[in-house]
Structure formats: C-alpha cells, structure tokens
C-alpha cells in the first residue's frame, strides 16, 4: 500500500495536530515534499533497520572508526 500524501492531509494535520493554518497552494507543495522524503526513509528503513537499532549507535561508530583507531 502506498497512497499519495494529499494537500488535505497536510492542512488537516497542520490545523488539528500543530495549530497551524496552511494555505491550499502551499499544502500541495508540502504534500509532494513530505511524500518524497517520507518514502525515501521508509524504503531505506525496510532495507536496513532492525529492532536493535537506536540513534546512539552513530556516535559510537564515529569513535570506533576514527582515523587514529584505524587498523
């Protein structure tokens, strides 16, 4: 299932969840933007993530793979 993100969804979400009023034309632009970015994350997450992931792994990996520590 991969339905389009619509301007209605953006406007409703803005008004109901964030107390933001968004014009129709801007909502259409935002819908396209959000859909593109959201799909990129879902696709990447499906390919790579599992239940052991958490954001702090990133900083640990930076330290582990640093220049001075290179094997």
């Amino acid at each position: 299932m991969n339905e389009k993100v619509t301007a209605e969804l953006i406007r409703g979400q803005g008004a109901q969840l964030r107390r933001l009023a968004i014009e129709e034309s801007r909502a259409r632009e935002l819908a396209a933007d959000v859909e593109r970015m959201n799909n990129a994350v879902i696709d990447a997450a499906d390919e790579r993530l599992d239940f052991n992931d958490e954001p702090a792994r990133f900083a640990a990996l930076l330290a582990d793979t640093r220049e001075a520590g290179k094997k």
Partner: peptide, 24 residues
Amino acid sequence: IEPGYHVPATTYLEALNLRAHYLA
C-alpha cells in the same frame, strides 16, 4: 522549516537510526 511539522516522529527516528548503517 514548514515541512518538518508534517514528518511523522517515526520517520525522523528512522532517519536517525539509519545514520550508523550509511556511515558503516
């Protein structure tokens, strides 16, 4: 800034979790 109000928290957190994978 505006688009950020319409990104689900789960999407944001997945983007953060993916960083270690892409770095590796």
